[in-house]
């Protein structure tokens, strides 16, 4: 008999007493609120975005200016004044910040995880872990300011052509910001690798380096991958740092062209903030475009979260 069944048995007589019912339904409502939040987000983004596109706007009873879905998804220019809503101009900047931050955060995060899980002694660990948490605890607007005031001028000594607002400095701070996320999830996965595997490795004459890279990392791969996806999804949704550091001018870049990082751009999140801080009228096309970007952003991050969950489940090795 499991403990749940035991609990069930022991509390059956009192389970429907008024105080029990009252507290239980309150707790239930609290838990259901999370589903309500998700539904509200989806419903809101979908209805408002529907008012934005010309295909769906008539269904919502909207007359006047709308934008075409095809142009939204394939256009490469985002100029509100001219009615050009090409989300690719924003997505490419987002992709660049995400790629740039990944180049910094993924190797450093995994290295940190290996060090904390395999090498650091408990004393060092107890110092390093809170220090890493602080990296994630500094407000993102502060990171943005750091990028703008300190990192960009420092980069200018290396790349004289770098703009005041540039994607490189934004990528660097976002990368630093997401290191703790990669490190802590990967480290959890590595500490979950059973010790027998390590001992077997040592028994075969492997060195600690070989055990760490050849046994622990492959065994923890599912956790490491899911930490990558979660961290990248966090980088995509990162707002204030990129708003302050990357600028407000939407430009279409080739994400794989390193020189483009020296130029500014306006990732999706930054565009949303700038739309609202600029003067847009409630209910206008620019206002509705906000929700269209929001929907795009939500779909991307939501998909990545789900994929990360699936990766963690699918490739989890049961020990």
């Amino acid at each position: 008999m499991s403990t749940d069944d035991l609990t069930e048995d022991l509390t059956r007589n009192t389970a429907n007493a008024p105080p029990e019912l009252l507290t239980r339904s309150f707790f239930f409502l609290c838990a259901v609120l999370s589903i309500f939040t998700t539904l509200a987000i989806i419903a809101l983004l979908v209805t408002e975005a529907a008012k934005f596109f010309s295909v769906t706007a008539p269904l919502m009873g909207i007359e006047g200016e709308t934008a075409s879905v095809v142009e939204f998804l394939t256009g490469t220019e985002w100029i509100i004044g001219e009615g050009k809503f090409g989300v690719l101009a924003l997505v490419t900047s987002t992709v660049m910040v995400t790629l740039g931050s990944a180049i910094i955060a993924l190797p450093l995060g995994v290295a940190t995880a290996i060090y904390l899980s395999e090498y650091a002694d408990p004393q060092v660990r107890s110092l390093l872990k809170p220090a890493l948490e602080i990296l994630a605890g500094v407000p993102t607007v502060v990171y943005g300011f750091f990028a703008l005031i300190y990192i960009t001028p420092a980069l200018r000594t290396v790349f004289p052509s770098i703009g005041t607002f540039n994607l490189l400095s934004a990528s660097i701070v976002v990368g630093i910001m997401i290191i703790p996320m990669v490190a802590s999830i990967s480290e959890d996965a590595m500490s979950a690798v059973p010790d027998d595997l390590r001992q077997a490795g040592y028994g075969m004459g492997a060195t600690k380096f070989e055990v760490s890279t050849g046994i622990v990392v492959p065994a923890a791969l599912s956790g490491i991958l899911s930490s990558f996806i979660l961290a990248l999804s966090r980088a995509i949704g990162e707002t204030m740092a990129v708003t302050v550091a990357a600028g407000a001018q939407a430009k279409f870049h080739n994400p794989f062209n390193p020189a483009a990082y020296l130029d500014g751009g306006s990732p999706m999140t930054a565009t949303m903030v700038n739309l609202l801080t600029g003067d847009i009228t409630g209910g206008g096309l620019a206002y509705r475009s906000l929700f269209a970007i929001g929907l795009t952003l939500f779909v991307i991050t939501f998909a990545m979260n789900v994929i990360s969950e699936l990766v963690a489940q699918r490739y989890r090795e049961e020990y």
Partner: peptide, 22 residues
Amino acid sequence: IDVNISNLAGVPSVVYGLLGLG
């Protein structure tokens, strides 16, 4: 509910801002 909560933890903060606005 469980999966939903961990997904909500990954929703960007601007989207929550949109939720508050809308």
